[in-house]
Design a protein around this nucleic acid. Sequence first.
DNA 1: ATGGTAGATATTTTCGAAAATAGTTGAAAT
DNA 2: ATTTCAACTATTTTCGAAAATATCTACCAT
Lengths: 233, 233
Amino acid sequence: MTTTALKARKEFGKTLASDIAHRLRNEIVTCQLKPNESLKFDALRLSFGASFTTLREALTLLVAEGLVVAEEQRGYKVAPVTLEDLHDLTHARILIEVDLMRRSIEKGDDDWEIRVISSLHRLARIEERAPEDYASNTEWKATHRQFHEALVSASGSPTLLAVRNSLFDRAERYRNLSAMFRPHPRDKVGEHRALMQAAIGRKADQACDLIRSHIQTTSNNVAKYAAGVISAG
Amino acid sequence: MTTTALKARKEFGKTLASDIAHRLRNEIVTCQLKPNESLKFDALRLSFGASFTTLREALTLLVAEGLVVAEEQRGYKVAPVTLEDLHDLTHARILIEVDLMRRSIEKGDDDWEIRVISSLHRLARIEERAPEDYASNTEWKATHRQFHEALVSASGSPTLLAVRNSLFDRAERYRNLSAMFRPHPRDKVGEHRALMQAAIGRKADQACDLIRSHIQTTSNNVAKYAAGVISAG
DNA sequence: ATGGTAGATATTTTCGAAAATAGTTGAAAT
DNA sequence: ATTTCAACTATTTTCGAAAATATCTACCAT
């Protein structure tokens, strides 16, 4: 009853499988589990303390999100990273995020404005406290995610929002990868503030242009700094 | 050794779970399994002849595709159909399909043209043979799917194509639902032919307009004829 | 040496039982 | 009649063993 190290423990989701999916997702996005790394059941069982079938269910979830690939009868592995995939991903993100942004600006109410403003404020504070390496800060990453989520949260499109979330995770993995090699993070606080102002000011065209170039330049930076570790595709 | 009725049999995918997902998907899309119907494991085990965990994996897959919803600790059920969901779905489909169409027209090579032309030809032949009720014809449905898939198949975007496929399934369920109540299917052969001609003729703007209105009017028809069986949302 | 095959090993996939959780029924108390 | 709570039933969720499949190794034939 006292051994908790190997025993699976629920923290997040209600079921063990969704909880393990959550933890696995995190390890993949942060590249603790490296691209192409094969996910053997014995090893996973050891580190997550769950049984074959529970792990299998968690992996199935991540396959659907594009973070894991299944080679039938030959197991699972962490999805590879390639330049081609990065381009594909970036294109899809821009298409969807721009649409969500425009409709969020149309429909956003007072609560939406508050969510956007307060998450940006929190983000700025974190950057003030640790101006050097905020991009590798776990708290910054979570808040950064919340800010972008807040921007599109009034769009009223559950389907596209769900897709957007998967794509955001996949993109964050690439960002983390490039952060390992990039000397210093570029100053993003300005971009985020401009985004907030355009959104709250209901300047839809401007906000869409900003989000488009925000995603595009981030992707370009990843391609530049992570080129070494990304396979040719 | 001779009893095959209850024994699970692989037909499609390599693993039993993906095969069962395929069969379940089909039953949901064709509304043999009705919206909101609860998917109890005992019943599924009986009709699919697989064990709890295998079924669970298949269901997890379908949850990711939006055809099944999971209520944690309280089982699975067929995703509900609502007017709100139909609108959301239609919006997402137009956004994605238009983008894929434009890029397919840009990049499409000779093989692409052949795929588009031959699938349209097959579709027209089926409609000739059974002009009355082709829309409830299984072969027509499969060919119709292939035609639309062919149109966007040269886009070179695995991510958006995967999303498109899920959305197509979800939309087909609504189409099947409305077909139960619609007196006679409207004549679609003209629309499909125009779509083909615009695509092959590399008239991108025109093709995008056509696909947009094709999806939109289909959705409007569904809303009109299936309003009775679709919950208010 | 090379290519192929049989046996042995490693790994994934599937199963049905056991544990955990939700839902239901019915008796006792107010 | 209504509420409460406890025992019971129904159902989902998790487990580890067993079956199926792939991979590796050693040996033989060419």
